[in-house]
Design a binder for these strands. Sequence first.
DNA 1: TTTAGGG
DNA 2: CCCTAAA
Length: 692
Amino acid sequence: MELHKRLDYGFIGYQVPHIPRATRSARGRGNIRKKSDSNEMCAFDLLTTVAGKLLLEGESTSNSSGKDQSAVVKDTIETVKEDEDTPLKENPCNERCQERGFFISQIVSEAPVINHCLSKSTDTLSGPASVITSSNCSEKLGSAEQFINGERKTENRNCSTKVEHELSGCRDFSSCTLGAESKKQVKLDLSNDATITTNKRAAVCSSEFPDPWDRKRSMLVASDNTVKLSLSTDPDPFGSFPVIRNDVQLANKDDDEKSCGCTQPSTRNKAFRPAPRVGDWRMRKLQASKYWEVNPQSDDEGHVNVDNETRHVYQKRENVYMNERSQRDFPFKKRKLYYCNSFSNSDGGSSDGICSSPTKDLNRDASGYSLASSGARAASGTSIPKGASASFRSNDSHVKLKIKSFRVPELFVEIPENATVGSLKRTVMEAVTAILGGGLRIGVVFQGKKVRDDSKTLSQAGISHDDKLDGLGFTLEPSPSRASPPLGPEGCSRVLPCETPQPLTRCSPGSTIIHNGMQRETYNAFPDHSGTTLSNFIESDHDSAPSPPDASLEKNAADSRALVPVAAMDAEALAVVPMRKPKRCETVQRRIRRPFSVFEVEALVQAVEKLGTGRWRDVKMRAFDNAKHRTYVDLKDKWKTLVHTARISPQQRRGEPVPQELLDRVLIAHAYWSQQQARQQMKHQSETRLLL
DNA sequence: TTTAGGG
DNA sequence: CCCTAAA
C-alpha cells in the first residue's frame, strides 16, 4: 500500500481557561441578565470576546495556581472514588477544576489510509498516540498539556483516573497522559467502538453526557510531503463513529458529495470561499448543506435524516483541504432556526463546556455536559441530573459560568512541507475563520514556543518531523484588526436568535456570555432560552477587565497560548464533514411553513388569470392584501409550485390536493401569460432595432 | 422595493 | 421558504 507521508494534526478542540462569572438573575428561571444593551450582539462577537478573555485568563491562572493544582487533583480523585454517586454538583472537584490552557496531542502514524486505523493492526499506526484531554473534572479525564509561558506542562486533571473516552476506534491510538508531572503517555488499548469507562462516574460521563471531545480519534498520518491539519470537534458525541469515512477519497476526489451515510442531497455552499492567497495549497472543504431544507419536498414534520449531511466544496485552485465537520448527530438539525445555533449548526457548537456555579459553589456537572450535546440527549431521553438546574438556582444573584472548552468543527488541512509557517497560519486561519466568522488570528506554538516567523518553512521550524509534532499547537488570538467581529449578512446581532428574551449577551467590555442553546429540551436550567442554539455561553464579570476588552485582548494576543490542538486528525472525519454556514448568526428565524389552502390557491389563480404573472405585487394586493403572512414573493413562489404541480402526475403531488380544475387553470393562465410575456419581449426587441 | 430564479 | 441578482 502506498505510504503517505503527511503530517496530520488534529484539533480536537480548543480548551480554554476558565472564564469566570456569569451573572444571572436570581429570580427563578435564571435568565442570564444582560449587562449591556447589546442585544444586538452577534454570537460570534461573544465568542471572540470570550476567546480573548480566555487568553488572558489562561495566562495568569496557570502561573499562579500551578501548585495547587496537583493537590487538587489528588483530592479530586479521592473524592470521586469515595463517592461515586455524589452528584457532580457536590463534587469538590468541580470547584477546583479549572481550565488553564490548551493542549495538543496527536498521533503520528504512517497509515496509508487513515480510516483504516480501525481495522488495521497497530503496526500500521505508530508513534505517539493522542493525548486524551481531560479538562472537565466531570467529563474529561486524563491530563492536559498546557503551554504555559512557553513551557509545556502536563497536568493531571481532576477525575483523571477515569478514561471514558470512546476513542472512536483507533485502537492503540490514544494515549492518556497520567501523572501530574509525567509527560509520558500511556497507551490505551481500545477496541473500535468501545467506550471505556473505569468507574461509575466515567460511565455517566460518557453515556449521559457524552462529550465529543473525548471521542475523537486522532492521529497523524505522514504522507507525501504535506502536512495535514485537522481541527475538529467531534460531531459524534453519541456513540461511536458509525460512519466510515475514506480519507483518501476525500483528499483526492471532489465528487464524493455523499460520503458515507449522506442521504441528503447536498448543495454547494458558496458562502465559503477560501482566499486565493493560499497559493499552492490545496484546500478543500466539506460543507454541510443547509440541513434544514435539504429537501424542499420533504415533509416538515417528518424527520430528516440529519445525520451525515455532507458537503464539500472543492476549489481546484486551492490546495488546502479543510474539512469542517459539525453537528453530525444533532437531532435537531432540521430545526436549526428554532434553536438558533449560531456558531455551528454543529453539535453544539462552538463551545463545549460551561461551568456554572453559584457564586461560591462552583458546580460543574450538568451545566457542562448539557452543553455538549443536549440535543442528542434530549432525543435519547437522557436526563440531566438534578444538580444541573439546582445549581443554577442560587440565592445569590450571580452565577459563575465557566467555559471549559470550545469546540470547533473539524478542519482538515493539507499542506506541503515546504510551505511556510505563515502559510500554515493562514491556512488554519482560513479554516477557523470559516467557522468563527473571522476576528481571530492563529498563532502557532511549537515545542512550547511561539513560532513568530511566518516566513520560515515548516521544515525549518522542525514542524515536519513526525516525532515532534506533538509539540505543535495553535492558538486562537484576537485579531488586532478587528475589535469587533463582523456581523453576519443579516446583521446578526444577537446571541440568541429566538425571540425569547435574550438572556445572554455581552455584559460589558470584557464580559461575555456564550450560551449554548440546544440544551433546552433537556436542560431546564435555562427554560427561557428555548430555541437558543448557541452552544455555549459565557459570562464574565465586567470588573474583571479594567481595560477595554479589545485592548486587553490585543495585548495578550502574543502570549496567549489559548488554543492548542489536542488530538490528531481523524482521518475518517475527512469524508463526512457536514458544515455549517460560516459567518452567519442564525438570528433570523425561518418563517413557519404555511401551506396554501385550496381557497388561497383559488384566489391566487384567479388573480393571476386577471393580472398575469410578473405582477406579483398587484396580485398580492388584489387577492392577499389581508394575508399579511403572504408576501408577493410567496405568491410568486406558490405560483411556481402550482405550475410545477400541475405538470407532474397526481401521484407525485404532495400535501393537500389541489383540485385538478384549478391546476388546469394554472396551466392555461401560465401558458397565456408566458405567451404575452414573449410577445412583449419581441415587441421590445423590434422597437429597439428600429431605434438602432 | 419588485421581479425573477435558483436553492 | 430563503436568498439574491437585477431591474
